[in-house]
């Protein structure tokens, strides 16, 4: 290898330089500082588990904070369902279809009440923050809706054991997943505390028109596995989008 010739003057100049090595304490301080800047690898599963546990634990508190009108309205829906099936002997599949998303639509007002009350900004700064609060309320309303639908399904089978269970299940699963997803999508952009009332009215009108129109009634009755799966899948996709949106709550999305 060819040796590089350095000008003696430059060589002397360079040799005059000394490097002060840091002492042990200075090195420790530097390492500590650098370590604090290193992004921590997130343990995704552990983080998801903690987050889910927090949301479930907070659900009970949120449930206790729900306005009595939510419970009263749902009692009316349940009563209406029971009366329809037992006294008026309406079509159980259509009854389930119409009732399925109602508890959720009524609950949208509770889920988004921080937004309507102007409390989202404050809630974003709390230990259990805005997205955990909304998720907890969603869980309460969603599970409660599921419970109501399951109860009415059980009642249908009690009234008429000849009904097809899978068809009953499909009758409420589609509106429960898809209609509630679309309703939540509209509610997120409406930002009005009248949102539940408006959406419930729209759903009532839609169901009334559908029941009065033989073509739509027939379409609903003849929903096969593939079509039903497509509707449910569409609903699931809408909900995935919602969940991502809720997780990334920020002041701009909340219009603050």
């Amino acid at each position: 290898m060819k040796e590089i010739q350095i000008d003696p003057e430059i060589s002397e100049f360079l040799n005059s330089y000394t490097i002060d090595y840091p002492n042990e304490e200075e090195m420790e301080t530097s390492i500590e500082y650098i370590l604090s800047q290193v992004p921590q690898k997130k343990k995704r599963f552990a983080s998801f588990k903690t987050s889910a546990q927090t949301i479930i634990a907070n659900s009970l508190r949120e449930m206790l904070m729900f306005n009595w009108t939510f419970w009263a309205l749902n009692s009316v829906f349940l009563f209406f369902g029971i009366m329809s099936l037992t006294v008026f002997q309406t079509d159980p599949y259509l009854t389930l279809f119409a009732l399925a998303p109602m508890p959720f639509i009524a609950g949208i007002f509770e889920i988004l009440k921080s937004q309507h009350a102007g409390l989202t900004e404050l809630e974003m700064t709390l230990k259990y923050n805005a997205h955990q609060i909304v998720s907890s309320r969603l869980l309460v309303v969603g599970v409660f809706n599921l419970f109501i639908n399951a109860a009415i399904t059980a009642l249908c089978l009690q009234v008429d054991p000849g009904l097809i269970f899978s068809k009953l299940l499909l009758s409420w699963t589609i509106p429960y997943v898809l209609v509630s997803g679309i309703a939540f999508l509209i509610a997120m952009s409406m930002k009005s505390n009248m949102v539940s009332s408006v959406l419930l009215t729209v759903w009532f009108v839609f169901c009334y028109v559908m029941i009065q129109t033989p073509v739509t009634q027939e379409f609903l009755m003849q929903l096969n596995g593939f079509k039903a799966a497509a509707f449910i899948m569409a609903g699931v996709i809408i909900w995935i989008v919602h969940i991502v949106k809720i997780k990334t709550f920020n002041i701009r999305s909340q219009g603050i």
């Binding site: 306005n67 009440k113 009350a117 102007g118 409390l119 900004e121 404050l122 700064t125 709390l126 230990k127 259990y128 923050n129």
Partner: peptide
Amino acid sequence: DSYRDLLGYLPQHIGYYKH
């Protein structure tokens, strides 16, 4: 949340649950 645990915040425009 360990930072938010140390935090007290009063926004410029704060809303309330009126009921």
